[in-house]
């Protein structure tokens, strides 16, 4: 990658862009441009090949059938695997998070093979659908302020040995296993159940991805006034019973 450019790939907006997760792309793009980066954004539909030379890949949430189709097409395409082998950063939400794991339950009620880029397995939860505001503490190793988001999922995600919990839930459900964890990550691949979209409420995550992609420790600060105001409001909302 050249010093000043950032290639941002939005994976399958035709299938996985149902819950406003396009916002994650917009926030990363905006914050990278504010740091003077030359951002190239590529929206890749599911009948197109995934480019392997991207720096950051974003995958959103979607409904059950599109999720199955997305997993099938990503596995057949193979581009995302090669991008990860090349060191690309991947950030995925909800249905996108589940398909990065080893297995998930599809719309036909079958266990379906995922991409295996994250050491997690997702099943369908027995209880009520998890819907509402969430507050969680992100793994301290990542040095980020608390995570705020909105969850809306039936799935439950179990972490394997090489997946680290992304956050520990204070209010809400997250992965829904009962261990209090939300999301998962390894060195370069991240998954979360948080919508909101998650970057709009946690712009520091966008900055983290940019830093990892550029391999730098710090970025120039930008105006965060409205993000901060929104964060305070949603954190307060999550801590109050509905």
């Amino acid at each position: 990658m050249s010093d000043n450019s950032l290639r941002l790939v939005w994976v399958y907006p035709d299938l996985l862009s149902t819950y406003g997760d396009q916002g994650n792309v917009l926030v990363v793009e905006r914050r990278a441009r504010q740091r003077g980066l030359d951002v190239q954004r590529l929206d890749v539909r599911s009948d197109q090949a995934i480019p392997t030379s991207g720096d950051i890949y974003l995958i959103g949430g979607g409904e059950d059938r599109p999720q199955r189709l997305a997993a099938e097409r990503l596995i057949r395409d193979g581009g995302l695997h090669r991008a990860v082998e090349n060191g690309a950063i991947v950030f995925s939400v909800c249905a996108g998070y589940q398909i990065l794991g080893h297995q998930f339950v599809n719309d036909l009620g079958e266990q379906q093979e995922g991409l295996g880029l994250l050491d997690v397995v997702s099943t369908r939860g027995e209880g009520a659908r998890c819907v509402g505001d969430v507050l969680a503490d992100i793994d301290p190793k990542l040095g980020l302020p608390p995570l705020t988001g909105f969850e809306n999922h039936q799935g439950v995600t179990h972490l394997g040995e090489t997946a680290k919990p992304f956050a520990k839930v204070r209010f809400g459900n997250g992965n829904g296993v009962g261990d209090g964890y939300e999301g998962a990550y390894n060195d370069t691949v991240f998954g979360t159940y948080m919508h909101g979209p998650v970057m709009a409420r946690n712009p520091h995550i966008a900055d983290l991805l940019i830093k990892l992609a550029l391999d730098v420790n710090a970025l120039p600060s930008v105006e965060d006034r409205w993000y901060e105001a929104l964060r305070q409001e949603r954190i307060a909302a999550a801590t109050q019973p509905a």
Binding site: Y19, G20, D21, Q22, L26, F150, P197
Partner: peptide
């Protein structure tokens, strides 16, 4: 609807 994510669409 209690989710505002749609604003980003």
């Amino acid at each position: 609807g209690t989710d505002t994510s749609w604003l980003w669409d």
